[in-house]
């Protein structure tokens, strides 16, 4: 049984424009801000903060557009950039628009070309939308957690 991350890795590996994007910084995240796939250079902070900010940004943008009564806001792209630096967010229109792709770039000669390639990647992922299908478990994961287990959980992190 493959994880979503593994399924995305395989799907992206089979993407025809792969060589054009593997030097790019991008990741795929859920609307809740969980990063589910990432291709980021080492110098970038690869923590959960990126996901949280990206998720918040997308949710706020969709909400703003919806309040302004713009139809189809959930399919909008989000572009925050100068001529050669910036970030670009694309919705992945699967599973009730749960997922997004973000490309971050710096000193890029032709960001427009990147956008075309990433749009193509999103289309490729939509063609394999079964990747995003998840099974839900109905039973509780834990029964009867004891207080000492919670204490132990936090004991390891507190100064």
């Amino acid at each position: 049984m493959k994880t979503l991350n593994e399924k995305l890795f395989n799907a992206i590996k089979n993407f025809k424009g792969l060589e054009k994007i593997m030097d790019c910084d991008f990741f795929i995240f859920s609307r809740d801000g969980i990063i589910v796939y990432k291709n980021l250079s080492d110098e970038i902070r690869s923590g959960q903060e990126l996901g949280a900010l990206s998720g918040g940004l997308c949710q706020a943008a969709v909400q703003l557009a919806t309040m302004y009564k713009l139809d189809g806001a959930e399919d909008f792209r989000l572009d925050f950039s100068s001529s050669n630096n910036g970030l670009f967010i694309l919705p992945i229109p699967v599973k009730d628009h749960e997922y997004f792709l973000i490309n971050l770039y710096r000193n890029h000669m032709n960001p427009g070309m990147n956008k075309i390639v990433f749009r193509s990647l999103v289309n490729h992922l939509v063609d394999h939308k079964e990747i995003f299908e998840t099974k839900l478990k109905e039973e509780f994961l834990f029964n009867d957690i004891k207080d000492h287990e919670i204490d132990q959980l936090f004991k390891e992190v507190r100064l």
């Binding site: 969980i34 589910v36 998840t134 478990k137 039973e139 029964n143 919670i150």
Partner: peptide, 25 residues
Amino acid sequence: TLKAVSKQVLMNIKGGAINENSTSP
């Protein structure tokens, strides 16, 4: 406070989406 809600949250986990998390391949 945080520990109390954490315990409730952990005991309430069910029906969460399976196998979606961030690790680089």
